[in-house]
Design a protein around this nucleic acid. Structure first.
Length: 122
DNA sequence: AGTATGACTCATT
DNA sequence: AAATGAGCCATAC
């Protein structure tokens, strides 16, 4: 485990792999696509709850390369995490810039942009 | 050391 | 169909 990355998880913690996996998956989300916390958790093994994925996202800013956390939303396509961005509007504007439409903090035609790692990623 | 909390979800009422 | 409760598991206090 590289040392320049600092987050409140000990090196020996097996959860470290989980975090890395989460970030790796998120990084592979193509531009203009989104996925959900639960999907990622399920893809990595149902043993870990979606909350941990959200928690990983919360710390995705302190690792490098940076993770496109704006492409991860809850299962309804709602931008539940926008408030955790520097300017909260950043998340929405980034998604809109990638061609998505957001209404009331929700992605329009969410299913159309949904990206499932277990099916789209080998 | 025990409780509370969270960028979540699913099952039950 | 909307509201509620319960699992989830690592941090924070």
């Amino acid at each position: 485990m590289p040392t320049n990355q600092k987050f409140p998880v000990n090196d020996q913690s097996k959860n470290y792999t989980f975090f890395q996996n989460v970030w790796d998956v998120v990084r592979q989300i193509p531009s203009g696509k989104v996925t959900t916390y639960g999907t990622i958790a399920n893809y990595l093994g149902t043993g870990l709850s979606a909350r941990m994925v959200g928690w990983a996202m919360n710390h995705s800013f302190v690792v490098s390369p940076k993770v496109p956390a704006h492409r991860v939303v809850n299962r309804n396509g709602m931008l539940s995490g926008k408030m955790h961005f520097s300017p909260p509007e950043k998340m929405q504007s980034l998604l809109e810039k990638e061609g998505l439409t957001i209404v009331d903090d929700q992605i329009k035609d969410f299913q159309l942009y949904f990206w499932d790692p277990s099916t789209e990623l080998l």
